[in-house]
Design a protein around this nucleic acid. Structure first.
Length: 277
DNA sequence: CCCAAGTCCTGGTTGC
DNA sequence: TGCAACCAGGACTTGG
């Protein structure tokens, strides 16, 4: 579930708890989850470097490190990734993929653990800036660098379903399957509509729902429909506010019609055929 | 056997 | 016809 609001929830906590801490020791790595670097490079490069800043673009976390080479640690949580910050005695568990001991000048030692049941998460360690694939992302869905005319321009001639368009991180970065269903319900647009078929008014409606839905997710500290927890292991609250996602067979709270489930872009998709046109 | 929040890759189709 | 852009679907991985 880590989509933009969940990753932002984690980013805020990391910014508070690990900024200014220094990597002391690399206890565990999962080489298959590494990109742009090797296990040896991680073990050789991280110790001694401080975490100077914790940033985010879409679903990626960007940790700027101190020292020679302008190194960045770029993290993606995949489908089931978790970042936990705790005591330095944290032990390697069955789903621990990375475990780092952190120290600091005048601060308590800590441990930062990257857990991931399914190993779809990724860790990149790169000099000179964040991982190269960051450059392929569109604007962050939460910021104000984009507007309805941007979406209209990107939509031109696109035959893919509007939901597939929203899930494509090259258009906007950060929207995943849950928030896509929610945004489309609020905008009263059917997820199966061809992207290029949206009117100017519909594109405006869509634009008007994207940031508020993501902001609500952040306010409730994420959506714990399945695996998501924050860096302290706490669940979020957005799962209780879902209007469409996972509601197949139930009544639509807006029009009373029954939600249907279809597959769009290979993902389970729930929408109301009564009011999402 | 079914399903699951993520991205990446491939092979086939479309259309300039 | 040539070929890039586009698009759907599968692969990856583990668990409920």
């Amino acid at each position: 579930m880590p989509e933009l609001p969940e990753v932002e929830t984690i980013r805020r906590q990391l910014a508070e708890t690990v900024t200014g801490l220094r990597f002391a020791h690399v206890h565990a790595t999962e080489p298959n989850m590494l990109r742009d670097c090797t296990d040896q490079e991680v073990r050789a490069t991280l110790p001694g470097r401080f975490i100077e800043e914790v940033d985010r673009l879409g679903k990626f976390l960007l940790l700027r490190l101190s020292g020679e080479g302008k190194y960045y640690l770029t993290l993606h949580l995949g489908m089931t990734g978790q970042i936990l910050v705790g005591s330095p005695t944290s032990e390697v568990g069955p789903h621990t993929r990375f475990l780092f001991a952190l120290g600091g000048l005048g601060s308590e030692p800590a441990a930062m653990e990257f857990r991931d049941i399914r190993k779809f998460g990724r860790l990149h360690l790169t000099p000179g800036g964040p991982a190269p694939r960051i450059r392929l992302l569109g604007p962050d869905a939460l910021n104000r660098e984009w507007d309805a005319s941007y979406l209209a321009a990107r939509s031109k001639g696109r035959k893919i379903a509007i939901k597939a368009f929203l899930l494509d991180q090259r258009n906007l970065a950060g929207i995943g399957n849950i928030y896509a269903d929610e945004i489309l319900w609020w905008a009263e647009i059917a997820p199966i509509r061809a992207t290029q078929s949206l009117s100017a008014g519909e594109t405006e409606r869509l634009t008007a729902e994207i940031r508020p839905r993501l902001e609500e997710g952040i306010r409730l500290r994420g959506c714990s429909i399945s695996d998501f927890v924050d860096t302290k292991g706490r669940t979020g609250g957005f799962q209780d506010r879902l209007m469409a996602y996972g509601r197949q067979g139930q009544e639509c709270s807006r029009c009373g019609a029954i939600f249907v489930r279809v597959v769009v872009a290979g993902r389970g998709t729930t929408y109301c055929p009564g009011c999402q046109k």
